[in-house]
Amino acid sequence: MNKIFWPILLALTLSACGTTTGTQATVEDRTGDQTGATAAKPAGADSTGVDGTGVAGSALPADQYAGDPRKDPASPLSKRSIFFDFDSYVVKPEYRPMLEAHAGYLQSKRDARLILQGNADERGSREYNLALGQKRAEAVRRALAVLGVSDAQMEAISFGEEKPRNEASTEEAYAENRRTDVVYADE
């Protein structure tokens, strides 16, 4: 029921925000911006993106995932995080049962697509950490490939240090953030 109201909400929001954008342009005018040019463009970018997201979000029925083995806490498919030691990109043996379960699921559902999201702790360069997170994602991708998962079903990406699970600057937090998350594209 709630979802039906989303498009209306969004439409109202859009019209409300037209005002906002206009005001921003006016403010920027004092800094020497050309007001006319700045006012129209962002509003256009807003409407396109919001409409698109609204449609995608309301298409799925609420009970889509009822009985989904990936959501069953008792299933190894519900386990989604692989943690790494400091400066290490080796998938530890303890994750084998979990990865085998995901490999089996992907082989049984050929249209399922998996995104492997690598992460790094906050120390050092953001771009270098992005590449380190990628190494952790690739390590899991290779492990799944060895278990027979098709490359076409997997994408290894990195969030680097940008999306920490634990934002503290402690060794415990760093360990939590040296991680690859296993996420299905339809989730």
């Binding site: 989303w6 909400l9 409300a16 925000c17 921003q24 911006d33």
Partner: peptide
Amino acid sequence: NQAPLIEIPDPMLRAVLFFPLFCLAL
């Protein structure tokens, strides 16, 4: 000086913006 603003839309934020108070904040 011409630096127009690009706003990356977020559905949750947009919904919140529906309330006039938040529009004021913005």
